[in-house]
Amino acid sequence: MEMLRLYFLVTVFALLSAFIIPSINAQAPAPAPSSDGVTIDQGVAYVLMLLALALTYIIH
């Protein structure tokens, strides 16, 4: 009878630990990216267009 009580207490402790401990260490999800790359690509395109315009102006 004493072993049955010990098994019961260990089982209850294990179940409570399984539900409580993960919630203590839970972290917030990662923030969404501030830029999806479209802005960077557009900036690079503008710089290349200005470079092509300046090169065309110098050549002519």
Rank of each mutant, 00 (worst) to 15 (best):
G43N: 14
V38C: 06
L9Q: 11
V47Y: 00
T39D: 05
L6D: 04
S23Y: 01
V12M: 11
S35F: 00
Y7H: 09
M49R: 15
P22G: 04
D36W: 14
S23H: 02
A54M: 13
A32W: 01
L15Y: 12
D41E: 08
A45G: 10
A18G: 13
V12S: 00
L53N: 06
P29F: 12
T11F: 00
G43Q: 06
I21F: 05
G37K: 01
N25V: 03
A52G: 02
L6F: 05
L48N: 14
A32L: 00
S17G: 15
I40E: 12
L4G: 06
P33G: 14
T56E: 07
F13D: 10
S34Q: 15
T39C: 00
V12A: 02
N25I: 06
S23G: 02
V47S: 04
I20V: 15
Q42L: 04
I59T: 06
A18E: 09
A45R: 08
A28S: 09
L53G: 08
L48E: 15
T56I: 09
A52T: 04
L55V: 08
S34D: 15
F8P: 00
L6H: 04
L55E: 07
T39I: 07
N25Y: 13
A45S: 14
N25S: 04
A52E: 01
S34V: 15
A14K: 07
I20N: 03
I40M: 07
P29R: 12
A32E: 00
A32P: 01
L48F: 13
A32D: 02
P29Y: 13
E2A: 13
A30Y: 08
T39R: 04
A28N: 08
Q27D: 07
Q27F: 11
A32K: 00
A45F: 06
L48W: 13
I20T: 11
I24K: 02
V38P: 01
F8S: 12
P22R: 04
H60V: 10
L4T: 12
R5E: 02
P33Q: 11
M1F: 00
A28E: 07
A18L: 14
L15N: 11
G37M: 06
L50Q: 06
A28R: 04
I59C: 05
I58G: 07
A52W: 07
L16G: 06
L48Q: 13
S23F: 00
I24C: 04
D41F: 01
P33C: 12
V12K: 02
A14S: 10
Y7M: 11
P33I: 09
V44L: 05
S23M: 02
